[in-house]
Amino acid sequence: MYDIVVNAINFETWPRGAQYGARLAALMEASLTGAYIYPSPLYAMPSFSTPELIQAVTDTARVLEAGAMAAERPFVAWANDMGVERAAWMVGQGHLSDALVQIATWHDLLVLERHPEWTWASPPDLAILVLAVGLPCIVVPPEPVGEVSLARMAVAWNGSTEAIRAVHAALPLLQRASEVVLLRGASKDAFQEVSWKPPFDIDAYLDRHGIHARSQDLACEDDEVGEVLLEQADRLHADLLVMGAYGRSRFSEWALGGATRYVLWNARLPVLFRH
């Protein structure tokens, strides 16, 4: 995990998402890219516009872009002060989800933050980003960010394809933990049309990567999984929860599965999602 990108929701201060991303990058000795994205002035243009209005909207966009571009040096200096040796700043114009999907292609991890007052960071937009970006995403909760630690980590495990992908994506983080706990829910066959002998063994897989995890069963109904996951992560004082982001179907991936949706909207700790 060498390249971390964080969505900077403004460029005058560095909010929770940027703080978490910077501290994580320093801990992992990774590079950090701050990405500020603003909408095209075309989005703000009404159907019937006067030349004066078009000029005003265009001028506003130019001012915003100039201010964002000028934030490169302050961001890099701030990241260096946070212990990040390699930092970069990029400014994009366009739809937020499209821009993040694009910039994600040359990074290993995307850091987002959840905030009820920001339209894009509330349902369904945050869910769309998590499912569409094609990259592991750490979603930072509204609570203040303290020191970033990876000492104790919880993994939501049910054997699904999404859970396997999440564990694989989180390996560099899990290898730094002094304690890893598998929170085991009802098993889901990841390969329903294929039979493997022996079947995939998560404990053996982790052990091959130097991770010695202990297991804890989740005794709950399907519609309680999200709530129970967060309760157990809280009892463990976990620094990070790792879980697969599950869409309801292949044809409507914007609609999250119940456990994923609950954790995404209610987690009080950072959560690594992988679709």
Score class of each variant (00 low, 15 high):
V130I: 15
V130R: 06
L131T: 15
V133P: 00
P136M: 10
C137M: 12
I138L: 07
V139P: 00
V139I: 13
V139C: 06
V139H: 02
V140C: 05
P141Y: 15
E143D: 14
E143M: 07
E143F: 05
V145Q: 10
V145P: 00
G146W: 11
S149G: 09
R152P: 00
M153F: 06
V155K: 01
V155Q: 02
A156P: 00
W157N: 05
W157S: 08
N158F: 01
N158G: 04
A163F: 01
I164D: 03
I164N: 04
I164T: 14
R165C: 08
R165S: 10
A166W: 00
A166D: 03
V167M: 06
V167A: 02
V167R: 00
H168F: 05
A169F: 00
A170L: 05
A170H: 02
L171D: 04
P172A: 10
P172V: 09
L173V: 10
R176P: 02
A177W: 01
A177L: 07
A177Y: 01
A177E: 01
V180T: 13
V181T: 15
V181C: 10
L183T: 07
R184W: 01
G185L: 01
A186D: 10
A186V: 12
S187H: 14
K188G: 01
F191V: 08
F191K: 09
E193Y: 10
V194N: 06
V194C: 05
V194M: 11
V194F: 08
S195G: 05
S195W: 06
K197I: 09
P198N: 05
P198I: 05
P198S: 06
P198V: 09
P199G: 07
P199H: 04
F200V: 14
D201L: 03
D203H: 13
D203C: 09
A204S: 15
L206N: 04
L206W: 05
D207T: 14
R208K: 12
H209M: 04
I211N: 01
I211E: 00
H212C: 09
H212Y: 05
R214V: 15
Q216V: 13
A219E: 10
E221N: 13
D222A: 14
D222N: 12
D222H: 12
G226D: 03
E227I: 11
V228G: 01
V228E: 04
V228L: 14
V228Q: 08
L229S: 05
L229M: 09
L229Q: 05
L230A: 07
E231G: 03
Q232Y: 07
Q232A: 13
A233M: 06
A233W: 04
A233I: 08
A233G: 13
D234Q: 12
D234L: 05
D234P: 00
R235P: 00
R235I: 08
R235M: 11
R235W: 07
R235C: 04
H237S: 11
H237L: 08
